[in-house]
Structures are given as structure tokens and as C-alpha cells.
Simulated scan of single mutants.
Amino acid sequence: MVPRNKRHLNQEEKKREILNAASALFAENGFDGTSMTAIARSAGITPNTIYWYFPGKDDVLIGVLNNLTAGVLTEMATMTALPIRERLLNAITIFERPESLMNTVHSRITQSEVIAAWHSRFHMLIEQILVYEIIKAGIAKERAGTLARLLVYVIEGLLSHPLQQNDRENMVDAMLELANLPA
């Protein structure tokens, strides 16, 4: 069966279908194992049509990452009553899910300017959230930016080099203690 364009769908709906298809294929086959043609077929469009919406596969990846990030932020917003330690451990668990694609991002930073730019914006977003949390915990604003950056790097390190749950908890506890943040 040859895919056909769904002309009755508006652009945002079609874009959403493409991103949903890409998300499923990336989770199943990985970024490198998924072609633009496979994404188009899965979305029910012709291969050339996908390029009307996304200049390349990295741009599709960014769309998928933006959707995932929005979902994670929504999920994290439901955890505001939890202590910072629990929220950090939950964030690490969420971002290490295979569908989060964070390892793909880190492997593509040197190969793709658009991925590198997305990664920088993502860091800034997470750092801003952490700065807010750190200041809310009573740490001086002057120190909050450095501590937030440190937290981001520790989280990325734990994502890149997974540890057993007990070791991960010990790392987070040590980081919070060094930062003088309440667990």
C-alpha cells in the first residue's frame, strides 16, 4: 500500500501525526535505525511530504524532544509537594527512559547545530527551574546559578553512566549535602 497525503488535515494535525510516528519509531528502532521514509510511511504520508514540515531528521527529533519535555515538565509539576531529593530522583528516572532520547541528543551535539542549540536551550530551561527551587530552599541567589548548573551536570552524568538505585541515591544525597540543600 502506498501512503497518501491526508489533505483534509491541517498543518498542525499533520505535524503532530509525523511526530507521533517518529516518537514510536525512535523508541522502537532508535534514532539511527529510523529513516525519514519510515517516519513518513508510519504517518501515512508520502516520503517527500515530510520535508514540507521538517527540513531533516534532526528537526523531527527536536519536535519529539519538545513534546517529551513538555510532558516531563507537566509530570514534574505534579510532584511539587515532594522533597527536592525525591523530585531529582524522579527526574532522573523520567529522563533515563528509553523514549527520552537524551543519549541520542548527547551523541549528536557535535554532529548537528540544531541539536546543539536545542541542548543549550534545554540546559537553560532546567537550570532556571533549579535556580527557582534552590532559592525557594533558602540558598542565596548569587550561589543558585552555580548550584543549578552543578545539579544539571550531575543529573546528566547519572543519565550517561547509570548506577544502581542505591548508588544513584547516594550521589544525589552527596550533591544535596555539598550544595547545602535540604534533602
Rank of each mutant, 00 (worst) to 15 (best):
T74C: 10
T74Q: 14
M76A: 15
T78E: 14
T78S: 12
T78A: 14
T78V: 10
T80N: 10
T80K: 13
A81T: 12
A81W: 06
L82W: 13
R85S: 09
R85E: 15
R85I: 00
E86T: 08
E86R: 07
E86L: 06
R87E: 10
R87L: 11
L88I: 15
L88D: 01
L89Q: 04
L89H: 02
N90V: 04
T93K: 13
F95D: 09
F95H: 11
E96Y: 01
E96P: 00
E96S: 10
E96N: 08
P98C: 04
E99Q: 13
E99T: 09
E99Y: 08
S100T: 14
S100I: 05
L101T: 01
M102N: 10
M102D: 01
T104K: 05
T104R: 04
T104Q: 06
T104D: 14
V105E: 03
V105R: 04
H106E: 09
S107M: 11
S107N: 13
S107K: 12
R108D: 04
R108T: 04
I109H: 01
I109C: 01
T110N: 10
T110Q: 12
T110M: 10
Q111K: 13
S112P: 02
E113K: 08
V114R: 13
A116P: 00
A116E: 03
A117C: 03
W118P: 04
W118L: 06
H119M: 09
S120H: 07
S120D: 12
S120N: 07
R121I: 00
R121H: 03
F122E: 08
F122T: 06
H123E: 09
H123Q: 10
M124V: 10
M124I: 09
L125M: 14
L125K: 08
I126K: 02
E127C: 06
Q128G: 09
V131S: 06
Y132K: 13
Y132T: 15
E133G: 06
E133P: 01
I134N: 04
I135E: 15
A137P: 02
G138M: 07
G138R: 08
I139F: 04
I139L: 14
A140Q: 14
A140W: 05
K141T: 10
E142S: 12
E142Q: 11
R143N: 08
G145E: 14
G145K: 07
T146M: 15
A148I: 05
L150N: 11
L150Y: 13
L151D: 00
V154R: 02
V154A: 11
I155C: 06
I155Y: 00
I155E: 05
